[in-house]
């Protein structure tokens, strides 16, 4: 374990993040974008081996104050990009889709999605991304720490400009892909 931690300490000093294999699942509530209510969401996504990225996001924030007069923000989305953001050591990402957003730092899980609005008063498709941090429900399960949506941002469609984030009442779990095994020794040997 100590060797693994040394890898972390060393790698955190580097810049740039790329998406790596792993899964995320969870959901719950967090504060609305400025409104009185709660944003409610579920998320699941996985990037594993060479299989296609897959997953879904459901999101609703009825009191987001720039949309609440028309029923708020509500959409269902398919995941088109995903991964646990890690330091770009050794293998520079040649695919721009593998590069994490600047807002998604090492240790956060990024999900890119294409959505369709489920609010008939704000219809249409769009795109967005979210960065989330597992603070203790998943692989690093610890005490009663909650998950964190570092940011969810909509960059196209009827909810363009929606940007929110906060502590999750619920959970965010990031995990290794099914069947994956740790190999601290080799990691340390290659990166020490």
């Amino acid at each position: 374990m100590k060797k693994g931690l040394l890898v972390v300490a060393g790698s955190l000093a580097m810049t740039g993040c790329v998406k790596m294999d792993g899964t995320v699942s969870g959901g719950g509530t967090m504060h609305s974008l400025g409104g009185k209510g709660k944003a409610v969401f579920t998320v699941n996504a996985q990037r594993c081996d060479d299989k296609p990225v897959k997953g879904h996001v459901n999101f609703r924030d009825e009191t987001a104050i720039d949309w609440q007069e028309k029923g708020g923000v509500a959409f269902k989305a398919d995941v088109i990009g995903a991964g646990l953001c890690g330091p770009d050591i050794g293998d520079p990402a040649d695919d721009p889709l593998l590069v994490c957003q600047q807002a998604c730092e090492t240790g956060m899980y990024q999900v890119d999605f294409e959505y369709d609005s489920t609010n008939p008063l704000n219809p249409g498709p769009g795109t967005g991304f979210a960065c989330m941090t597992d603070l203790g429900e998943g692989i690093n399960g610890y005490k009663k720490m909650h998950g964190l949506v570092n940011v969810i941002a909509i960059n196209a469609g009827p909810y363009l400009g929606y940007v929110n984030g906060g502590v999750v009442s619920g959970n965010i779990q990031t995990k290794e892909c099914p069947g994956a095994k740790n190999d601290d020794t080799e990691a340390t040997d290659e990166n020490a």
Partner: peptide
Amino acid sequence: QATLIAAA
């Protein structure tokens, strides 16, 4: 995979 552990 090892880097995943570090990131996790």
